[in-house]
Amino acid sequence: MNRLATSLGKLSLQSPITVASGTFDTGYFDLFEQNILGAYTTKTITMQPKAGNPPPRIFETEAGLLNTIGLQNPGLKGFLSEELPRLRDLLDIPLIVSFSGSSVAEFEAILETLEKEEGIAGYEINVSCPNVEKEGIAFGAEPDVVFALACALASKSSRELIFKLSPNVTDIAQIAIAATEGGASSLALINTLYGAAIDWKTGRFRTSNPVCGYSGTALKPVALALCHKVAQAVKTPILALGGIHTWQDALEFFYAGASAIALGTAFYSDPLAAVKLHQGLKDHLEEKELALSELIGKASLPLP
């Protein structure tokens, strides 16, 4: 019996562990077996290639990592010709393609192109990347826009449609409701918080773009609270991420209502974080004679 089996909307996952878009690459499979993961999510692709932001792009803070990569990617054509064939050959686990657009029409056009390709299990719709001025944030912050985008995309695909939500909004539950009503079949949350760092000796920002995405340890309580909030607002399956490192972290998110989790920044402090998480979770569930699915959303209030 696979106690770790879970599902994310239409996807059956053999492991509840996935990877945060943009943090992971198949190079890690030199270090561990891919079936530790339940799915593989690509770096976000856009219609046109993107050079990304100038260096310096990253800076480590007390409890997390700042980044301003700027969605560097080879564009849809480059992805189809160089990346997708390689991923199809290499992966035995479901492939989720993350993409972003500058208009509803562009999101639709990318999806229509990807629909013609085999070997893709689902899409992650990046409406929340805070790094790039036009793409992403304007979509993710407005419930009406998220609803319209979800409607447009859901009508064109029967594949898993994951909307990735930003924490940098007034009420994430309203965005989750809008995505769900529009047809999103699952929700990934949270994307990075805003963050910045300045060298106090020189007064200079540490990164080329002053306002970065902030990820890592510090995000965990924020992500957990928002996971709970969204789980209360909608029945849509949740892929939780934000500061998760250990199997104990993952359990907290399952209790809060997540069906699966993603690791990101954790890989940079421990390349084998997913392996340890997988083993720890498996051992724990065996000891308790439980299946993961029995824990999801079962968080309760402290005893008086």
């Binding site: 943009g22 943090t23 992971f24 690459d25 190079g27 890690y28 770096k43 990304g52 100038p54 260096p55 310096p56 792009r57 990253i58 800076f59 480590e60 990592l65 980044n67 990569i69 560097q72 890989f267 940079y268 390349p271």
Partner: peptide
């Protein structure tokens, strides 16, 4: 020399023009 995170080419944090 570069400020670096993953070391494996995944994060695109350590780029130069």
């Amino acid at each position: 020399e570069a400020y670096m995170a993953c070391g494996l080419g995944a994060c695109h944090g350590c780029v130069v023009p």
